[in-house]
């Protein structure tokens, strides 16, 4: 029961069904579920923006333009030179949004990869070997899930110190529990397949069963989870920045741009809304994609 705490609705339920071959249904799924395209395009767009951020951006994101502030020190509204306006230090918001895309995506992706790695490994071990190994790992998972995630990450970042890599390490190291649960469930299901039993009976080595049979079978749900996790971790980074312990300034992340924009949104709304829009759309992209992929990997839903 508690395992569903942080799982986007019903994920485990739908994931619990043994996947079958789906290539023939692929097209049908996409037709039935067009949002996956939209999500995919949004993510692709984000990735391109992030990868080529420094090629696209018109200015150095950390350069403080002397003409980027009004005489009274107010940031400038969007105009021809600064298409998304400037911030309180006269830096170009557009360039910073692009630089932020890189950092935010970096945090989201690396954190998710770390969780993916830890979660999958522990989930497989737990599900495949069972018995006391399973009990121990599942207890640890329970412990991880009991903690309030944000505060837990805050505590760990305080220990590690404030930097981009520490932020994604903390998010990753503390965020694997759901993955472990799902993978374990999947492994348990796959383990009961006749051909797995047969392979075992024929004396196939564990590693062979793991890599040839189990891994391919859990790939679908894990991809879904990871896709959703990237979005969630990008949001978590913004929350950390709001709390003052995210990516350290002057480096731009959408999180700390939002946190700065928040304070001045009444007279410099562009400082809040552009990074806010960028973050929301990107996370939405990952959520749509993940949600769509879940349908895709769940053959029962396509009739």
């Amino acid at each position: 029961m508690s395992q569903m705490m942080t799982t986007p609705g019903g994920l485990e339920q739908t994931l619990a069904y043994p996947p079958k071959k789906q290539s023939s249904k692929f097209v049908r799924v996409l037709k039935a579920y067009p949002l996956v395209f939209i999500g995919g395009i949004m993510v692709l767009f984000l990735v391109i923006m992030a990868v080529f951020a420094y090629k696209i951006m018109p200015y150095n994101p950390n350069y403080q333009f002397p003409n980027g502030l009004a005489m009274n020190g107010a940031p400038l509204a969007p105009d021809k030179q600064f298409i998304m306006g400037t911030d309180e230090l006269g830096r170009d918001v557009f360039s910073r949004v692009l630089a932020g895309a890189q950092i935010s995506l970096e945090v989201g992706v690396f954190a998710s990869i770390i969780s993916l790695f830890i979660g999958t490994t522990l989930g497989i071990i737990s599900g495949y070997f069972g018995k006391w190994v399973d009990t121990i790992i599942m207890r640890i998972t329970d412990i991880m899930l009991a903690f309030p995630f944000v505060l837990f990450v805050v505590a760990l970042v305080s220990v590690l110190g404030q930097s981009v890599s520490n932020v994604f390490i903390a998010l990753g190291v503390l965020g694997w529990a759901v993955t472990a649960r799902v993978v374990r469930g999947q492994v348990l299901a796959v383990r009961e397949f006749e051909y797995v039993q047969a392979a075992k009976a024929l004396g196939a080595p564990n590693w062979r069963i793991l890599f040839k049979i189990i891994l391919p079978n859990i790939a679908g749900p894990v991809i879904v989870l990871t896709t959703l996790a990237i979005g969630n971790n990008m949001l978590a980074e913004s929350t950390l920045s709001y709390l003052g312990i995210g990516v350290a300034p002057p480096q731009a992340s959408w999180g700390n741009m939002l946190a700065e924009g928040q304070q001045v949104f009444q007279y410099a709304p562009w400082m809040l809304y552009y990074p806010g829009l960028a973050l929301t759309l990107s996370v939405l992209g990952f959520n749509l994609l993940g949600d769509g992929l879940r349908e895709l990997f769940n053959p029962r839903r396509v009739r």
Binding site: P8, L35, G231, L235, S238, T239, Y242, G255, L258, Q262, L272, G276, L279, T280, L281, V283, L284, N287, L288, D291
Partner: peptide
Amino acid sequence: NVITLIGVSLAPFF
């Protein structure tokens, strides 16, 4: 679906 997912995609403090 899109509307509820937009909800999930918003930073709560925002």
